[in-house]
Design a protein around this nucleic acid. Structure first.
Lengths: 232, 232
DNA sequence: ACTTTGGATTGATATTTATCAACTATTTTA
DNA sequence: TAAAATAGTTGATAAATATCAATCCAAAGT
């Protein structure tokens, strides 16, 4: 599907090093699609036929069991998701839904696998991407197992602060109930955790956060690169 | 280091498809080492100089933060660990210690990276391995976030039952305190969880487990391929 | 502008899980 | 083999977290 601005996609780490004609082949079968909010793009257990790339908007990855549901991640532009399942042609372990109006590129998984077989640079880029994802989930497991919910929240705020470029005021950028689920707690618990963090200089107004005493928040949160650094 | 029996290693999925001379090159720099129990092989944060392969015995991967510690996985023969860190030359996110007397092959990470660059089959095998690891951790996160500790224990017992080939009597094969930590609970809590499971036909004697009512245990555990199947 | 809907907060309570301490059983070691 | 160390269990209690219900608030739709 022509008419997509592919330059941004081309510059994704996953695709930068691959041969031009392989990139062409991959994009020939691509769909650009607009979705309204709250559309379930993938259901857990599906064999997804596409590698998904979020171009605009945001997508929630979540998982369910026994009528319980938990947010696993929020995917924002520009990044791919369900790479592992698409490559291995395995059932997706997570569901995906749009959180807001979103624009996605869908790359047929068969094409991705075909190019993966012939393009060695792409294969190596996939390793880098998967290694990053793997390490990300390991960090997240450590976060869950080693920290209380208040500590997780404190570290999440510091992470957002760093991501904002060091601003003392920034937005959560997600609904609180999703943040709660992501952090492994209930909305009620999150609400109380925010109250507890007032004593550490955290001021909440809707999704807006102000940090008035970073040092005391850090003393509580004890962030470490081995859990909280998205790179590394 | 010659004198290692390399046939088993050669048959690891990671190495089966790679060119003979590349495998040779990789093994030329390999060390075969014996370790006593309770030796810390890797400390979290280290830049490991070796890809580790467990040939005999078992190794615990664990992580620490703020004086707390949690078991992340137990590695048994024959499998590799810290592949992601070795490939990316990144700091290890987990520590590793021998649980019992163990025999390991240490492959210099520089060699692994060098062969990764030139051997395309190896690069693709690494993708398969990392995808498997990634999906494993995702399942583990779902397990942690969606289930109570009793449900996790029940599913763990069913997993061991399946792994044993369907036997109704099998061994935990780990100390209970490590199982507890792996499942994200305290030893006291595990002890009580076992007691609770008596009502579901679970009989514990030391590390020996007997299941007398699989059906009721399954009704409680509700195992699903998307969390509990090690393949898939 | 009003109503509806769903998110967020708060209080009361229940459940789950952790902690602490005492004790028992098992292993290890001298 | 005895002593010491460590693992495991049990009971009592505390802390963390979830649930339920009521209410408040804000966004979305009519």
């Amino acid at each position: 599907m022509r008419s997509i601005d592919l330059t941004e996609i081309r510059e994704l780490p996953l695709f930068t090093d691959m041969a031009d004609d392989n990139f062409e082949q991959l994009m020939r079968g691509a769909y650009l699609q607009n979705f309204p909010p709250q559309v379930e793009l993938i259901s857990e257990g599906d064999h997804s036929d596409f590698l998904h790339i979020v171009v605009e908007g945001s997508v929630e990855l979540f998982a369910s069991w026994n009528n319980r549901e938990t947010t696993m991640a929020t995917v924002r532009p520009i990044s791919a998701f369900i790479l592992a399942a698409a490559l291995k042609d395995a059932p997706c372990l997570m569901s995906a839904r749009t959180l807001e109006k979103a624009k996605l590129i869908l790359l047929p998984a068969v094409d991705v696998r075909a190019v993966f077989e012939i393009d060695n640079s792409f294969a190596r880029a996939v390793v880098t991407e998967l290694a990053q994802c793997y390490r990300g989930v390991i960090k997240s497991t450590k976060n869950l197992k080693l920290r209380t919910s208040i500590e997780r929240l404190a570290n999440q705020l510091i992470k957002l602060h760093v991501r904002s470029g060091g601003l003392l005021e920034f937005s959560l950028n997600v609904e609180k109930k999703r943040l709660a689920s992501y952090l492994g707690m209930t909305p009620e618990n999150l609400s109380r955790a925010f109250k507890t963090l007032q004593a550490y200089g955290v001021i909440i107004d809707g999704q807006n956060v102000k940090l008035t005493d970073i040092q005391s928040l850090k003393d509580l949160a004890k962030p470490t690169a081995l859990i909280d650094d998205p790179k590394s």
